[in-house]
């Protein structure tokens, strides 16, 4: 499609807005007022990495119904195997045994694939070059999807994921269980610090990753009588593995 077709009806629409606002059309960037208060910056300001980690673990386990495991880089393969094996045994259906691993270099560098297979896990590593069908099929059949998070938010028990070639959107979406790995150094107080990174990216003229997800625990609903049910269309289970690397 050509450009005009990709942007339709804009002029008249915006002219009308200017008209109802009773002024000429505004085409220059207005001065964006600075936020009036700093209360969002003050949440958990000055907390140490250990305090943030503790808060993340506490909120995740108590409010989200997810598991949080603190471990070290050296133990990651063992801890990850155990987490995946637990889901293999506990999940609801029998079809599909695979674990889908993100191909993110930070994840791949941190684990020993042999150790995972020796533990009895069959693995699929995300591979964009194989295209949509192969990757979707693998994720659809898998029990567990393992991803690496850019950041974690202590206040809300949130994992921040950017879509990327090595780590598709559906790894943390189609399998019944999600395992997130995040270094302790990437834990920040709240959404404020995560959006700050994105604002900086934007200022530097970079395109946003096409899909950024802030994920807090497994999927849930309260649409029937306001009763919370964990596990709707997204994952039913979630484990956060925090690498205590500092």
């Amino acid at each position: 499609m050509t450009n005009p077709a990709r942007l339709q009806n804009r002029t008249a629409f915006l002219e009308n807005i200017a008209k109802v606002l009773d002024r000429p059309r505004r085409t220059q960037a207005p001065v964006r007022p600075a936020l009036k208060y700093r209360c969002h910056q003050e949440v958990m300001a000055g907390w140490s990495p250990d305090q943030l980690r503790d808060r993340l673990v506490d909120y995740t386990e108590n409010a989200l119904g997810a598991k949080a495991i603190v471990t070290t880089k050296a133990q990651l393969s063992r801890v990850l195997s155990e987490a995946c094996l637990a889901y293999q045994q506990n999940t609801l259906s029998d079809d599909g045994k695979d674990v889908v691993l993100s191909a993110d270099v930070r994840l791949q560098a941190g684990i020993d694939i042999n150790q995972l297979t020796q533990a009895g896990l069959s693995l699929y590593v995300w591979d964009s070059s194989l295209g949509y069908d192969a990757n979707i099929r693998a994720c659809e059949r898998a029990k567990v999807g393992v991803v690496f998070a850019e950041q974690a938010l202590a206040e809300s028990g949130t994992m921040v994921l950017y879509s990327q070639v090595e780590q598709g959107r559906v790894i943390s979406l189609l399998p019944e269980a999600s395992v997130f790995i995040v270094p302790k150094s990437a834990i920040v107080p709240r959404l404020t610090q995560a959006t700050a990174v994105l604002t900086e990216k934007a200022k530097a003229g970079k395109r946003m990753p096409s899909c950024i997800n802030f994920i807090s625990g497994p999927s849930s609903t309260a649409d029937i009588e306001l009763i919370k049910v964990v596990g709707v269309h997204g994952p039913i289970f979630a484990t956060y593995i925090i690498l205590d690397d500092q």
């Binding site: 409010a63 964009s128 194989l130 295209g131 949509y132 990757n135 979707i136 938010l153 206040e155 809300s156 949130t158 879509s163 990327q164 070639v165 598709g168 959107r169 559906v170 709240r190 959404l191 994105l198 395109r207 946003m208 990753p209 096409s210 899909c211 950024i212 997800n213 802030f214 994920i215 807090s216 625990g217 497994p218 999927s219 849930s220 309260a222 997204g234």
Partner: peptide, 23 residues
């Protein structure tokens, strides 16, 4: 809902990048 964040806050920018395979 009385929570710091809901289960998913998803920020979508355009169609997927050409080298990605889902989205």
């Amino acid at each position: 809902v009385g929570l710091p964040l809901t289960g998913y806050v998803t920020a979508l920018t355009g169609p997927r990048e050409s080298d990605q395979c889902d989205g």
